[in-house]
Each structure stands twice: as C-alpha cells, then as structure tokens.
Design a protein around this nucleic acid. Structure first.
Length: 109
DNA sequence: TGTGTGACGGGCG
DNA sequence: TCGCCCGCCACAC
C-alpha cells in the first residue's frame, strides 16, 4: 500500500457511503484497520472541510447522534442534509439509525 | 521527539 | 440513554 494519508482513506470511504445511508466513525476506523482510532476519523472529517465532495453529514457516532453538526456552517445544516436524503432525524439523532447504518467493512468487504 | 488535541468508543452505574 | 473515566490513533507545531 502506498503511504496514503489516513485522512485520504477516510474521505475515500465517506465518498462511498450511499445516499440515504449513514455510518459511524468507529465503523470507518475499523474498516481502515484502526478500530480504536474513531477519534482520528472525526479529526479527518474536520480536516475534510476543504474537500467539497465529502458527505460528512452521513457520518455520525455509534448512537446515531449528529455530534458533528456544530462543525457545519449552520447547526441545522447536517440534519437538513440528512432529511433531504430521506434520513429521519429527531432531536439531533437518527431515529432508525440501525436500519440506515452502512458498515463499510461489510458492504465493501 | 514530545506534547496537545479531537465530530469516538467501551465499561460501569 | 446519559454521565463519567479512561484508552486509543493520527496530526500539527
């Protein structure tokens, strides 16, 4: 494997998340081989602010909470983006997170 | 090289 | 589910 930035890998996985689906930081971290590095994934998201194609709104914590909404332009931007894709959000939380959950390690192999 | 940091996750109650 | 504590990883300086 090429010495690729961890951020690049994270962004790459996020790009593969199908519309209407969501995943967690831990899932991405696990897929990249750093299951304990979920925090780093979140860090990569923030760093990904310079990446326009990055659908960071599809990435939430393990409980399906929109913990990163505050890092968007507006606190409601994340929720609106999700609802626009058909993902119901209530009280900063994805109601049917279990069904909407998209595991990269499982979907991508 | 060491230190600080962060959009997390797991265990416990 | 939430709050608290602790451990983990990668990056910037």
């Amino acid at each position: 494997m090429v010495q690729r930035d961890f951020f690049q890998d994270v962004h790459d996985v996020v790009r593969l998340i199908p519309p209407g689906r969501v995943t967690s930081y831990g899932a991405i971290a696990a897929y990249l081989g750093a299951k304990a590095g979920a925090r780093t994934v979140g860090w990569a998201m923030m760093a990904g602010h310079s990446v326009p194609d990055l659908a960071c709104h599809r990435v939430v914590n393990r409980l399906g909470m929109l913990t990163g909404k505050h890092h968007f332009g507006s606190p409601d931007a994340m929720q609106q983006a999700l609802e626009a894709e058909g993902v119901p959000v209530e009280d900063d939380r994805i109601t049917d997170f279990a069904q909407r959950f998209w595991d990269p390690a499982k979907e991508l192999g």
